[in-house]
Design a protein around this nucleic acid. Structure first.
Lengths: 240, 240
DNA sequence: CGTGTATTTGATTCCTCTCAAGTTTAGTGG
DNA sequence: CCACTAAACTTGAGAGGAATCAAATACACG
């Protein structure tokens, strides 16, 4: 792999969090990576698996989830194209959550050792990786507020707002129309609601004129209304 | 400040996540710190405050919380003596949550710049700080599961188990008796329950013989039963 | 075109919230 | 050392949001 490669997902990701020097880029280009294709419903890794890679999803869509002993499932993170997974377990040897593809997805696997090494050699790389988990962390905390303190209507409104903004950031959407590539069951697992109630709440938001939905295709008809319903403020998504 | 100082909270904290060289220790010792006393109910910082310090709580007890626009409050993190706050906003200039003392507390303030500088100079320091937010992050995700997927009884059982283990880790408790320095109202803000229901659930756990409670003093009578009730597994607290 | 999955809608249950009132505890000043 | 006060805790009764149970419809895929 040489420096002339047009795109390197790891570099693209890290550059979102701060500038990298040519030397940094060289270091990162030298990291050997492996592509993995994961079909919908399949797992990139499971909780407690021994792992020694982190990953960047370059296309598709995936979620990070945890299960209780009783088998209840909670989705704790979204993985949108371009985003990284597993930086938080860079210094651990077991996965703390299951990564499941929702859409056919491509992951670029990055050996922990190699990234650790690059981080040790370059403060800028280290800093960018640091900022990346900090950003993830901020989202988890906001989800805690969303699940903990909002009713179904608020949760869904908040989630839709977050999803749209994150999609835009990754260059996946423009405007207020988008596809949400999740079943209502999965949305329930994100927001801690039953699929039945997710469905009814979509109905309520629609009849209130906030959204229009056709299957998994959404139109936000009243953005401010949606923000309001979800008590959404973009701040926690601001990164750098 | 010189290297002969017996204890340096920042060093103690970072050393939990990996060994530091003498050079690292010197770097960290050179960081100027300031102590701040915060009384119960008072704030070390508020959401959106412009800040340029992170902090280590050396004694007392505090919580990190966020508020919705409607004013509902969700506690998103605990700050036990020895633990750090604000590493995640090391590269941001505003606080993403409010830190409120629950007990009279002492914080050691560490200028962001100084720590950033130390991280840039020392991969080991950088790595330790990284591992620290990774550990926080793992706890947030577990809380998401706890609030999202367990009923009141399970949430409280899980919380008590986590609290006891974290207390032990910080050397605050031995055995199965401890004081929980939070009002039932605050516990409700952690677990997303009303104080009324927290109270009733304590009663239920007690009449089931899992715990004995006298005010804020708890005895765990049946540790395995508690772990079971909360579906608690220690793994997410494992750090390094 | 059949089969399994996802969505939709209805009826009912229940866990937790809300409202309300009383009790205990802790802190303060006389 | 005790009266006073505010905060925290406790207990009761009733309401409500979301879950559960159930069944029908729509949809995607081989």
């Amino acid at each position: 792999m040489n420096t002339a490669d047009q795109t390197n997902p790891l570099i693209e990701r890290l550059e979102k969090f701060g500038p990298l020097s040519n030397q940094d880029l060289t270091l990162l280009h030298e990291i050997p990576t492996e592509r993995r294709f994961i079909g919908p419903g399949s797992h990139l890794m499971r909780e407690d698996d021994v792992i020694c890679d982190c990953a960047i999803i370059t296309s598709g869509f995936a979620v990070g989830l945890k299960k209780t002993i009783e088998g209840r499932r909670q989705i704790v993170s979204l993985l949108m194209p371009g985003e990284a997974y597993g930086l938080h377990s860079l210094f651990s040897n077991t996965a703390d959550l299951t990564v499941q593809a929702v859409r056919p997805s491509i992951f670029v696997m990055i050996p922990d050792r190699a990234l650790q090494n690059a981080m040790a050699l370059s403060p800028a790389i280290s800093r960018a990786a640091f900022a990346n988990i900090a950003a993830e962390s901020a989202i988890s905390r906001e989800w805690l507020v969303n699940i903990g303190r909002r009713d179904a209507r608020g949760r869904i409104a908040h989630f839709l707002a977050e999803f749209l903004i994150r999609s835009e950031r990754q260059g996946l959407t423009k405007g207020f129309s988008f596809e949400l590539p999740l079943t209502q069951d999965q949305i329930g697992d994100i927001l801690s609601l039953t699929p039945v109630h997710v469905n009814r709440t979509f109905g309520a938001l629609q009849s209130d004129g906030l959204i229009k939905r056709d299957g998994r295709y959404f139109d936000i008809l009243n953005w401010n209304g949606l923000l309001d319903a979800g008590g959404f403020t973009e701040r926690y998504l601001s990164v750098s």
